[in-house]
Simulated scan of single mutants.
Amino acid sequence: MSLLQTLPYSLYNNLVKRKDWIQKVTTVKKIRDANAKNGEELINYFDKKGYTLSQFYKLLKDCDISLTETNSQSGALANQSRPILKIAILVANARYDNWSHLVTPISDCKILADILKSMGFIIFLLTNVNSKQFRESMTELCTIIPTKSYVLFYFAGHGFELCGTKYMLGVESPSEKYTIDNGVSENFILKNGFLNKPDLFILLLDMCRKQPDRVSNPDIYLNIPRMEEYKHTCNLIIGYATSPYMPSFEKLCCESANSLSQVQHDTCEINHMTKSDNLESFNEEESSSESDGIGDQVTHKLTSEKKLNGVSLYVNHLSKYLNKNEDFIRILELVHKEFANEQCEQALLQKPQKLDNVAGQFYLHLKAKGHKETEEKLHSIVNELHNQGINIAIK
């Protein structure tokens, strides 16, 4: 990982504000090509030079620069009460009945699940669920989540935006004449998520936010969508993978079975393509999807000699910072900065957004107190939902 990815934000912020260390470093180390006018530019210089965190610490020590960090993080952690439980609900819809199959949702959720599990989260993974199964699962899980907990919800799949509300599509959705009943709204998620007053609720939507086409689907505009009302009872952070009316992209990798070193990369839009549409660089008509079960990566096989996999652009950047011991809002800011530095042209169309209404800072590494009775109930609910034919697993 790069220096900017591993450098504690409190130290970074401290060095950015200080000027004394710039002259020390450039003089002692006789650095002539830095041309740094401030602390941020000098840190970026060492990042581009490939410095690791340990090398950067040694450089500061050699130059007799204090490593004392600001106490903002330690103070925030001291004042932050431990959550009862930390729960992540991850939904991966990849294999749609009438829309194009998506490559990355299950692998995206698996990447996030591994990181969050290492941070002490209980993981619930839903895969390829229809809208009815989606709603039932969220209702059942959220009724058990105890108060004063942390909840992180993430969705990867097809979606749309209508009248300012975002809808996550179930796998049964028609490709053209779909209605809001084929989707689960973010308001529904928040209404159920706030039910037992968790201390923090994080909503992450990794999907397109385009509006339904008025020509092929005019009926969806005839009625004002039903809005689920909810009472804002906890700290809320929302992260959207893209901006209103804009697409979201998958970063795909096509590997040859005969030569794993020859890899072709491309980015494809997570949009309203039907099964008959073609991916720009890969022939969807020749592909098929395989999944060995919940939590396994979906691989699209284009031919007998090639396979297609990848990661969404959003998770590609989020996974770099999610395990950092930083305030979560700061983590989203770092993700947005990565998008700003992204070189591919698709990143110009995909600009993530965040909304927040929080009191203080929230560090996801904070250890949960634990609640054995609730954990047993959650396991029981997962078994019941699984027996109903819903693809759900707990990790």
Rank of each mutant, 00 (worst) to 15 (best):
E69L: 12
G157K: 03
H336V: 06
S319K: 14
K37Y: 13
N35Y: 12
T139E: 14
P8A: 01
E376H: 06
E373Y: 07
V263Q: 15
E186S: 14
Q350S: 04
P105R: 09
C234T: 13
N316G: 11
I144R: 13
C63Q: 06
N309H: 14
V382T: 14
I111H: 04
E161L: 08
G39D: 07
F249T: 02
H272P: 00
G310P: 04
Q262K: 09
I220N: 11
I144T: 13
M207Q: 12
N38P: 07
E269V: 02
K117D: 11
T147H: 09
K231T: 11
I237C: 05
A113H: 03
K324Q: 10
L200W: 05
I65R: 01
H300W: 10
Q55R: 06
W99D: 10
L364D: 04
G239P: 03
I390L: 11
E376D: 08
E345M: 07
L355R: 11
F249W: 08
S243A: 15
P247I: 05
L42D: 02
K210T: 13
I87T: 15
F121I: 01
G170I: 07
L112K: 03
L126D: 08
N357R: 12
A78I: 03
A368C: 09
C253T: 14
L355Y: 13
N235M: 04
E280A: 13
Q350K: 06
I394F: 11
E136Q: 14
V311R: 11
F362D: 03
S291V: 14
I122K: 08
D356K: 08
N38Q: 04
S10V: 11
N98M: 06
G159M: 02
